[in-house]
């Protein structure tokens, strides 16, 4: 797969150029929340478009990406280039909170009453935070011989960041919530 990164304002133009070069088949469009990931560009949503050249089906696909700020992301719709892209844009819009200018504003999967953007990494599954995780135990660990090693489940944030946070504190910033919910070896609690 070859990749092309462009600025948000060049999104439609870059796509039209790719179509002119033969990449006329729309494969899919999606987004990734890059917050809290080590080595990531930072506080951005990455929108990804994958195109294919129908004349050479076995050839590598072309991947176009652009990065939008997480706060108020807006992008021009590709609906005039590929009519089918509107469907994918509706999903990205409701899951990540991206506004597609000139796109279809209706929701695709979520109910009208649903609030929030479920695929953003700072969106917490409250039920997960409140349920004991079966993977927390170590092999061979019993109540009689507890292990000192602690594992945390992916998707449930550190209680000191979200949940049991001191009410006097302001809510944790999105970056801290996302970074504390990656799972693996539990971090030592801050003193």
């Amino acid at each position: 797969m070859t990749g092309v990164r462009c600025a948000p304002e060049d999104w439609v133009g870059t796509t039209r150029d790719a179509v002119a070069r033969g990449y006329g088949f729309f494969e899919w469009l999606g987004a990734v929340d890059e917050i809290g990931r080590a080595g990531a560009p930072g506080d951005v949503l990455r929108v990804v478009l994958v195109l294919r050249d129908p004349a050479s089906p076995g050839a590598p696909t072309l991947r176009l990406t652009t990065e939008l700020p997480r706060d108020g992301p807006r992008l021009d719709s590709l609906g005039h280039v590929f009519a089918g892209a509107r469907w994918h844009e509706r999903e990205v819009a409701e899951m990540f909170g991206v506004v597609f200018v000139g796109g279809d504003p209706r929701r695709l999967l979520l109910g009208a009453e649903f609030e929030g953007t479920p695929m953003r990494k700072d969106e917490v599954l409250a039920a997960r935070a409140a349920t004991p995780w079966p993977g927390a135990k170590e092999p061979g660990e019993t109540a009689a011989s507890p292990s000192r090693r602690r594992m945390a489940p992916p998707g449930a944030p550190d209680p000191t960041v979200w949940g049991d946070r001191d009410p006097a504190d302001s809510p944790a910033p999105a970056e801290e919530v996302a970074a504390s919910a990656v799972g693996g070896r539990a971090r030592r609690r801050r003193p």
Partner: peptide, 17 residues
């Protein structure tokens, strides 16, 4: 414990000693 930790729906419970 690998299966219990990888399970996305948290449906596997293991006790061992």
């Amino acid at each position: 414990m690998v299966c219990a930790r990888e399970c996305p729906s948290w449906c596997i419970t293991i006790d061992s000693h």
